[in-house]
Design a protein around this nucleic acid. Structure first.
Length: 559
RNA sequence: GCCCCCGUAGCUCAGUGGAUAGAGCAUCGGACUUCUAAUCCGCAGGUCGCAGGUUCGAAUCCUGCCGGGGGCGCCA
């Protein structure tokens, strides 16, 4: 029996109690889904529900009394072997081994689909993340969003949502001009301009631009007038950077469905259209030579300039047009992941959303994640694009590999800062729990391989009542939690929950492995015990693989 | 000054109002002449930053303070 089935049974049982008058409540008082969770301590049974405590007050009875009322009815359910009322009114439920063990077959038969749920079915979500400027390689801060964002996208999809991964490419404006001037200066052998970029990569790109021009038979950029030369460095340099970023992300296992170029919003007239729309809606005013959006009408702390007095669009103008564009492409939820250094944007972005007539925090959601801190020998390392002391996605991957990098970035809450110790990274980091999880997976594969060689086959038998060891009920309970964890991670936009869950599952598996043997000893006869344990082994393998897949981490067959 | 995040075991961190607050790493002591010892078992380790409040119940919610990080442009 899965916890979902148990939850549904509980719901039905409550409805019955309301219908026959034993429970003085109306059907509307009952929660849509009854919470069924693993109790903190295994001594409290396989599953627990707090529904009696939730309903006690409404029903005008003590939670314990209500729990006792439900106890007998629960016990009558097939597969339930014990029910006790505990503490303030918990109902602790123990399944008989056969009912609990049945889950092993459920998992194996569901295969890669196990854990999928439909809680977000029908939602069209646009998830924007990374969106690093094309003025340099993706640094360590951007990598966190690549790992977290892609994992979140996978979990949203596993929960039934239709997700588009999107990268906003800021190829317009003053920063790009600085990038172009830096390339030009370096090509001429000069120092980077005061407000420009200085890293080694600038030289490489400058050379690459010149090289590409030569390959295409076009005049060398430096022979052109200053303006034209700078434009060549801008256009070609951005394109090269774009290609490189795309490639690096691909190697990191992150592929976007849409790379959206900011410049296109300006060249297509989308910005003008968005401003015109807001003007129609009466939220635009002119002052001090500039055009403003009255965001204070929607809770922002000050109004915002969208068209500067010099005639150029302010940065937020692009955001307006971009948001409108996403909505017009049919997304009902626009999610943007930003670093903590951008949290000040939330107010104006939500105001902008409301100005368009949408609902802030529903149609537009902004996820703020804390920054990654680089540390070397306990001392913070300051990164600077200008000085070229940037730690990039490649540096990280070269040091620890994609799996360890993605896992370590995705396993903590985005609310907490991550300290990455550069010295620790360069050592073989056995400290990364990803190996604990991957090792568990490799073990399940190895066990399955040996079992097959010794003639143990799942098809020959399955007797779930044989899964009666304490490590087996713990492992089964952990397997049963997977779907709920995935749904919760998606709903709360907290992919780290899946990683934490996998560590727990891997632990439960290792403990089981230590206590119970799948393959027969020596010339021992193959029995249903071996076959049934193989089902459990393979069910665990499946969930570990599915979970690692949600994190974009490989599930190795050998280690 | 205002806004956001964090403060939990020696370290890194889980824990969206529930039971005796957990895991990994580190330390110490055990377990492989049979499915992977990258594992398992055991010991030890805590005023959940501090002080109030809300209630049957608070690490979790509210208020104030302390400490750390980030943000408050006609920059992008």
């Amino acid at each position: 029996m899965t916890p979902a089935e148990l939850s549904a049974a509980l719901r039905a049982l409550l409805t019955d109690a309301v219908d026959d008058g034993t429970l003085p409540l109306s059907p509307a008082d009952l929660p849509a889904t009854v919470t069924v969770e693993r109790p903190r301590s295994r001594e409290h049974g396989d599953w627990a529900t707090n529904v009696a405590m939730q309903l006690g007050k409404k029903a005008g009875m003590s939670p314990r009394a209500l729990a006792e009322l439900l106890q007998a009815r629960l016990l009558a359910l097939p597969g339930v072997s014990a029910v006790e009322v505990a503490g303030p009114g918990f109902l602790n439920i123990t399944l008989d081994a056969a009912a609990a063990g049945e889950l092993a077959r459920t998992v194996v038969e569901a295969g890669t689909g196990f854990g999928r749920n439909e809680t977000l079915a029908g939602q069209r979500i646009n998830l924007e993340f990374v969106s690093a400027n094309p003025t340099g390689p993706i640094h360590i801060g951007g990598v966190r969003w690549a790992a977290v964002g892609d994992s979140l996208a996978r979990m949203l999809e596993a929960s039934g949502a239709q997700v588009t991964r999107e990268y906003y490419f800021n190829d317009h404006g003053a920063q790009i001009d600085r990038f172009a001037r830096s390339l030009l200066a370096r090509a001429k052998g000069e120092e980077a301009p005061e407000d420009g970029y200085g890293g080694q990569y600038i030289s490489e790109i400058a050379e690459a631009v010149t090289e590409r021009r030569r390959a295409e038979g076009l005049p060398a950029p430096l022979t052109l007038p200053q303006d034209e030369a700078q434009e060549v460095f801008r256009a070609v340099g951005v394109d090269l950077m774009f290609t490189e970023i795309k490639e690096r992300l691909h190697q990191f296992g992150v592929d976007f469905d849409v790379y959206f170029h900011e410049d296109s919003l300006h060249s297509s007239g989308a910005v003008e259209r968005a401003v015109a729309r807001l003007r129609e809606l009466g939220h635009i005013f002119e002052a001090e030579g500039a055009t403003w959006l009255r965001t204070t009408d929607f809770g922002d702390d000050k109004d915002r300039v969208i068209l500067k007095s010099d005639g150029h669009a302010a940065y937020i103008a692009g955001d307006l047009a971009y948001y409108l564009d996403k909505r017009e492409r049919g997304f009902d939820r626009v999610i943007i992941m930003l670093g903590a250094d951008h949290h000040g944007y939330i107010g104006r972005m939500m105001a902008m959303c409301a100005a368009f007539g949408d609902t802030p925090h529903v149609n537009l959601e902004i996820l703020i994640g804390q920054l990654v801190n680089l540390v070397r020998e306990g001392q913070p390392v300051r990164m600077s694009k200008r000085a070229g002391t940037v730690v990039t996605i490649d540096d990280l991957v070269d040091a620890v590999g994609v799996d360890a990098a993605r896992y370590s970035l995705a396993r903590s809450s985005t609310d907490s800062m991550i300290d990455l110790d550069l010295d620790l990274l360069t050592r073989a980091s056995n400290e990364n729990p990803v190996f604990y999880v991957q090792y568990a997976h490799a073990r399940t594969v190895s066990v399955g391989r040996n079992a097959g060689e010794l003639g143990v086959s799942r098809a020959d038998g399955f007797d779930p009542a044989l899964l009666d060891h304490t490590t087996e009920s713990t492992l089964l309970a952990a397997l049963g939690e997977f779907g709920r964890v995935v749904a919760q991670a998606a709903e709360l936009r907290e992919p780290h929950r899946v990683a934490r869950y996998l560590e727990e599952l891997a632990g439960a598996y290792h403990k089981w492995y230590d206590q119970r043997r799948v393959t027969p000893f020596g010339d021992e006869q193959v029995t249903d015990t071996h076959r049934t344990r193989l089902w459990l082994n393979d069910a665990t393998r499946q969930v570990l693989a599915n979970g690692l897949g949600l994190l974009g981490v490989s599930a190795p067959e050998r280690m």
